Structure formats: structure tokens, C-alpha cells
Simulated scan of single mutants.
Amino acid sequence: MQSNPGSPHSDLTLAARPGAARQARRHVARVLPGWGMAGLADTAELLASELVTNAVRATAALVAAAPGEDRPPVVPPDRLGTIRLRLSRPGGRLRIEVWDADGRPPVPRAADADAEGGRGLLLVAALSAGWGWHPARDGGKVVWCEPAGP
């Protein structure tokens, strides 16, 4: 993990498990004040949590896929159970990026009004100045967002 105040980015590798979102929120809360971005902390913690939760779910689905099922190319086994969070400051803006091993694009879901989940990417879109995804050079994908705000 790199998170000193003078650094242009901060990286955190997480196990693709349910507690990863909590760790991501804590990491964001530690890094942003040192970057003079404490005013974005609440929104950034929520966004990082949503992206990490989606990455954990994508990884779990990839791991659970039976041989022969429609699976994207798999990254090396030593990276399959991990996800990576990167915070950076391009042009003075905050960018949150989350890598996971599943190279398929994220798909926003239409959530039922009573559903407890399924709104993550809709929330990301609503709270961000921009968001998107791209295939990662070394396999998998990166989903990113830039929080709207001060």
C-alpha cells in the first residue's frame, strides 16, 4: 500500500471477500485528508465501497463458473482471489479505480423498488462526474469513477 501525502496515487490490494468494501472505505478515509480532499471523503468512501463490492461479486462469479461455461480469459491463479483499489489525482480531481479478474464489462441492473441490492452502478453514476471501465492490460478489467463535488 502506498498512501503518503506527496504521492500521486495510493494502491491497496484486497482479498476478494465481503470485508473488502469496509477496508476500501477505511483506506479512502485515511488517504483523502492528506491530499487536501477531506470534503470528498464521504462520497468517495461510498463510491469505493460500491466498486469494490461489485468487484468482489464479479470475482466470486468467475471463481464459481463451471469449466466450459462462458468465462472470460482468466488471469493467473495467484491474482484470481484479489482485487485492487487505486486512488489517484489526475488534474487535481480524485479518481477511484478498482481492478478485478473478470474481463467482462460491468452491467448496471434495474433494481426492484423493494430490492436491497442492484443499485451500485446507478449510485456510482449519480454521484460521479464520470465513470467507466476498460480492459486491463494484464487481464481483467478496471472500473473507475471521479466523484462529483468540490
Rank of each mutant, 00 (worst) to 15 (best):
G103D: 10
G68D: 01
A148S: 10
L32A: 11
A16P: 00
Q23P: 00
A101G: 12
A48H: 02
L123K: 05
A16S: 02
E97G: 14
A60I: 07
T59D: 12
R104H: 14
L14N: 02
E50N: 10
E50Y: 14
S88W: 05
L14S: 01
A110M: 11
T82N: 08
M37D: 15
G6R: 07
L123A: 05
R93H: 12
R109T: 13
A61S: 11
R71T: 10
G103T: 07
G139P: 12
P106C: 03
D114F: 12
W35P: 14
A125H: 12
G6D: 10
M37Q: 15
G19T: 06
P77C: 01
D112G: 04
V63M: 11
V143E: 13
L122N: 14
H27S: 11
V98C: 14
A55F: 01
L47T: 06
A20Y: 00
T53R: 13
A60E: 15
P72L: 06
T82M: 12
P77N: 01
W35N: 10
R22A: 14
G34K: 13
Q2F: 10
R109P: 12
D70C: 07
L47R: 07
A110G: 10
E69T: 07
M37I: 08
G132N: 08
N4C: 10
A16R: 00
A29T: 07
P105I: 05
W99I: 06
A16L: 00
V28C: 13
R79T: 05
D11Q: 09
A125M: 04
G120L: 02
D112V: 03
L85N: 02
R84N: 04
A60R: 15
P147E: 04
A20D: 02
A148T: 05
G140R: 03
L62W: 10
P90A: 04
L46G: 15
G39C: 08
P147S: 03
R109G: 10
R104P: 14
H134G: 09
R57A: 14
A38C: 13
R119T: 09
L127P: 04
V75L: 05
V124H: 00
R25P: 09
P18D: 12
Q2C: 05
W131Y: 09
E97Q: 15
D42P: 15
V63G: 06
R57T: 14
G132S: 05
V98M: 09
